[in-house]
Design a protein around this nucleic acid. Structure first.
Lengths: 141, 141
DNA sequence: TATTGTTATACTCTATAACTATA
DNA sequence: TATAGTTATAGAGTATAACAATA
């Protein structure tokens, strides 16, 4: 019984959503929402951002991002500093505590997945490695 | 250059997150939330459910599911009927309109991904199909 | 004037607690 | 008593509109 390409696409979508949901559930700080963690991860990967920059990157409104940043600031994970060149801008960056929580969460998320990948036959790990390349290709198109 | 298993896990996590984000951005544009659509899809795949059954399946509280079902009922996509054997239960099932909207939405949501899968060589589609099985296995563990 | 950040306000989705009907 | 469904109410997270400060 051969599946159609449309069915293969549908299967891939469902598998990716399920695995993504499961991975996202592995968090280091239970009080932090996905949106909050996404902001910390963006700052971790690409350094300081303005509020508008973060809002555009995460595709939420500026007031919504302002609220998220306020929460992270209250938790001590980010800090605001005035931009020396443009008085309207505020640079938002990770504190040491913010950097730590990102590393911890990434490690924890990877630990769960790595434990499951480790138990697969070598051949299956090869399939996943190639699938990763294909998914990257699909996303970048 | 051989990657470690931990690096493979990390690569897989990032690829899944990116593809998931990209797929979610291909929104259905029909005023229906993800939660509402998930309920229709569950009824479509597995037939009628009770309210509690739906709540457990989607991992939300019963009141939350009750509200979702109320919205879907108001939209004419599902209907409630008394269970003949147990007066406490209500069976929730798709209407004809509900069945139609599921097919339409699935087609629309998958169109983007299917178009990209279609352009891959046959071997690569085989890799993705096997990767889907592996991801399902990983999630169910 | 345009842009950046912020406050005010409202809507959606979620949860817990409490109530009703039935087993 | 226990279970299924529902209602009441509250807490996140989101959005648009409006405002202040700066370019």
């Amino acid at each position: 019984m051969q599946k159609t390409i449309a069915e293969q696409g549908s299967d891939l979508r469902m598998a990716v959503f399920r695995l993504s949901r499961r991975l996202r559930a592995q968090k280091a700080d239970d009080g932090m929402s996905d949106g909050q963690f996404a902001v910390l991860a963006a700052l971790y990967v690409d350094g300081a951002h303005t509020l508008t920059g973060l809002a555009e990157r995460e595709r939420v409104s500026a007031p919504s991002m302002n609220r998220t940043v306020n929460c992270l600031q209250d938790s001590g994970y980010v800090e605001r500093s005035a931009d020396p060149d443009d008085g309207r801008k505020t640079n938002i960056s990770l504190t040491d505590a913010g950097t730590s929580i990102v590393s911890e969460t990434v490690t924890k998320r990877d630990a769960w997945l790595t434990a499951r990948v480790k138990d697969l036959p070598k051949e299956d790990r090869g399939v996943l490695a190639r699938a990763v390349e294909l998914m990257e290709e699909i996303v970048s198109h």
